Amino acid sequence: MAEDGGPGLRERKKKQTAIKVWRTAVDLFLEHGYEQVSVAQIAEAAEVSKMTVFNYFKTKEDLLMGPMEEHVEDLAEAIRARPDGSSAVDATRAMVLRKIADRDPSIGLSEQGNELALIQLVQRTPVLARRAMLWSVRGERAAALALTEETGDALLSSVAAAQLSGVVSALMSEHHRRILAGESPAAVAADAGERAERAFALVEKGLSGFAVRA
């Protein structure tokens, strides 16, 4: 590495700027509403140029949805990385239980505070709600592709991916519902693992023999 930090320092500064812009955008969206905030206002509040904002985020939607969509292929990646002898159900259950243990925001159990407000903002903003739906579809399709590559059966792979994706979505929605109803993330997390086990047990019998890695 060069004495001035070289590419490593530049990359860190770029990441810091991107995070600053994203956090500024989130704060403004939550305070004023998505439609009421312009990219120019975000740039001014973040003390950067409008061009800098677009260097990191291609569209206004990306300012909010981009970081969330980093998890779009989590299910497909868990399926591909599973060990020999385990099924797609095993892989998905292990991924969910790990996220629950880590209080991962992508499973709806973060203690940070603004994730639920963001979810509510997405749900009440049509353009963002449509993108969230497409995000879900993309994740399911990626999982189906991962299974098809392995089994050669596109139909059953699509069926399996839909069921597994559905369980993950249902668990996340349940966590959101309970927290919005007044329960603390810690209280919801306390029995989240047991609920996940029951949810996967419901689909396991039908999928237990499918895509077991030899």
Score class of each variant (00 low, 15 high):
S165Y: 08
E204N: 03
F54H: 13
R195W: 03
V203R: 06
P67L: 02
S169H: 14
A46M: 08
A187S: 15
E197H: 14
T92E: 06
E73L: 12
D74N: 13
P126L: 11
R131F: 05
A170M: 14
S184R: 12
E77M: 01
A199M: 09
T151W: 03
L28V: 05
R178V: 09
S158A: 15
G139D: 03
D102R: 14
L164A: 05
E77Y: 00
A76M: 09
E47F: 00
E70C: 12
A132P: 06
L97K: 12
A101K: 13
A78V: 09
L64P: 10
P7S: 12
F200S: 02
E149Q: 14
S158H: 04
G209V: 09
A144S: 01
A154V: 08
P83W: 05
A142V: 01
G182H: 06
P105K: 04
A196G: 03
A199H: 02
A94I: 11
A189C: 01
E35C: 08
L171T: 05
A143P: 04
D191A: 05
I107W: 03
V203I: 15
S136N: 08
L97W: 08
W22S: 10
L63R: 10
A94K: 14
S158D: 06
Q36M: 14
Q120H: 02
L30G: 10
G66D: 02
A45C: 07
A88Q: 07
R23G: 12
P67W: 06
S38D: 14
E149P: 06
A214W: 01
A25M: 11
R82P: 00
A81L: 12
H71S: 13
S87T: 12
Q163C: 10
A192R: 01
G33V: 01
L164Q: 04
G209L: 04
A78C: 08
G6V: 11
